[in-house]
Each structure stands twice: as structure tokens, then as C-alpha cells.
Design a protein around this nucleic acid. Structure first.
Length: 265
DNA sequence: ATGCCTAAGCCCCTTAGA
């Protein structure tokens, strides 16, 4: 089964691309970020007509995450991360879905960008990271199949960017950001794309500016983290990068994993 | 050193993104 994370950068502006993707690839589960819509203004009918059940954690203007599942309604498990009651950003939505190999937990994650750095936005990013790590620890303890999918706004390795120099001062590549990501992985999570692409990349994001896409100046910031029972089922991982080159594209491309249908012994 | 481009709110400029 195919599980996708896709930062759409506005679900209303991206609806033709998203519907096209659902029709062409028929992914089983899709985690969306930056829907930039409230629960009321999201194009729910079109998604449902495409054959997908969906739950949303929306917000007016920016942020917003969703979980879509083909032929079923995801069951909401958690909406927003605990630990900072005054945080009103919609960046986390966790759900349970059914698979032929049993239940699967998926989370759609939109981690704060953190620029400019230093400053309150960078501090917020690091605090949010710790709150995510607390939740991730609880999920691992359940010992089920879990996928933490989303836009982490972290370039984990130097080989995950077209230019270390261009990004050196960016919040996406700071030691604190990488350290938080590495500590999360050290809990026992598998970075699916990194495992399948040890030499670096593939890119998941190309800036709209500076002619980045034609020059392939991208980096890898959208990640799917797998609990051990999920990692045991990993059979492939990649980026559907041609969607980045289509008309009215998001600056991110859909990033996916393939999980085997049966549990390995 | 700066802006490069895009979406959305609000209404044609500002905020935010990465």
C-alpha cells in the first residue's frame, strides 16, 4: 500500500493537482500539510467524490493538516500536540486506518519552519519538536505500525540539499534542528527515504524563486518516519517529482512509501 | 545585500512561507 505526504501549499489553489494525483496514483493514505483552509472551507465534497474519506485540522489563511484514506474514513486519534495550550497553529493530526495487514496509525505533521533564526520562530520550532518527540515516544511504546508523515522543515544530511552553502544559515539546516530530528530517530524510528536513498536526497521541495525547479535546486524536508513494525513492511520509497513540474504546482512534491501487505515473520 | 515567487486575507497591499 502506498502512503503519501504532500505539502499542497493551499488546498483550494491545488485542488486540480491533488485530484489528478489521487486519480492517477490511487494512494491508500495521504497526509496533507498547509491546506490553508478552515474545516468549513475545505473542498470536502470533491475529495469524497474522488473516493477518499478525510479528516481535517484546518486554520484560516495558513497551516492546516489533513489525513485522507481511500475507501474508508480515518478515525481521529489526536488533534494538535499537547504541551503548549496557547499554541493555536494547526500542525498535527493523528488517525487510525485499516490495512490488509492490520491497523495502522498515521500522523500528518507540519513542523514550524523556524526562520528567521535566531528568534521566537526558531525557539517555537524547537519547542514544537520536543512536543512531537514526547508524542512519538508514546506511539512507539504501543508497538504498533505507525507512520509519522509530514513536512519536518529539516534537511537531515548535507547530501539532502543541492547546496550546503546556500542553506547554511537557514533554520532548516541548523545543528539544533538536525539534533532534534536525530534524537527523534534515535527513539527507534526509521527515516524511510534516507534508508532507501543512502547517498542523499531525493529532493521533495524546490523553491518557487530563483528558477529553482529548472535547475533542480531542491532539498529533502518531507519525511516519513516508521515504527519498527512499519519499517519491517517497507518495500519502497520515493518522490513523485513530476507533479512539481506541472501547471500551478505546489513547491513540494508528493513523497511516498510502499508498505507490504503482509507482516513479515 | 536583496529579491527572486506564490497563496490567501482583504480587497490591490500585507503576511507568511522555506
Amino acid at each position: 500500500m502506498k502512503i503519501v505526504t504532500y505539502n499542497v501549499n493551499g488546498i483550494k489553489a491545488r485542488l486540480p493537482r491533488l485530484l489528478e494525483y489521487l486519480a492517477e496514483e490511487r494512494p491508500d493514505v495521504v497526509c496533507l500539510q498547509e491546506i490553508k483552509s478552515t474545516d468549513e472551507t475545505v473542498p470536502a465534497a470533491e475529495i469524497r467524490e474522488a473516493g477518499y474519506g478525510a479528516i481535517w485540522h484546518g486554520q484560516k489563511g495558513f497551516n492546516g493538516v489533513a489525513v485522507l484514506a481511500r475507501g474508508q474514513d480515518p478515525v481521529e486519534r489526536l488533534r494538535g500536540l499537547p504541551g503548549e495550550p496557547e499554541d493555536d497553529h494547526s500542525r498535527y493530526l493523528e488517525a487510525a486506518v485499516e490495512t490488509p495487514a492490520g491497523p495502522l496509525t498515521v500522523a500528518s505533521i507540519y513542523l514550524p519552519n523556524g526562520n528567521p533564526r535566531p528568534g521566537p520562530k526558531f525557539d517555537y520550532k524547537l519547542r514544537w519538536f520536543e512536543r512531537l518527540a514526547d508524542r512519538a515516544r508514546d506511539l512507539l511504546a504501543e508497538e504498533g505500525a505507525t507512520v509519522l508523515a509530514g513536512d519536518y522543515n529539516v534537511i537531515p544530511r548535507d547530501a539532502d540539499t543541492f547546496s550546503v552553502r546556500a542553506m547554511a544559515q537557514d533554520a532548516l539546516m541548523q545543528p539544533e534542528s538536525r539534533g532534534a530530528y536525530r534524537r527523534l530517530l534515535a527513539q527507534g524510528w526509521t527515516d524511510a527515504l534516507a534508508t532507501r536513498h543512502p547517498a542523499g536526497g531525493p529532493w521533495t521541495f524546490w523553491d518557487y524563486q530563483a528558477n529553482s525547479w529548472p535547475q533542480d535546486h531542491g532539498f529533502r524536508i518531507d519525511h516519513l518516519l516508521l515504527s519498527p513494525p512499519a519499517a519491517d513492511r517497507l518495500t519502497g520509497a520515493g518522490v513523485d517529482r513530476d507533479y512539481r513540474g506541472r501547471e500551478k504546482a505546489s513547491d513540494h512534491a508528493p513523497t511516498w512509501i510502499e508498505l507490504g501487505m503482509t507482516l513479515s515473520s
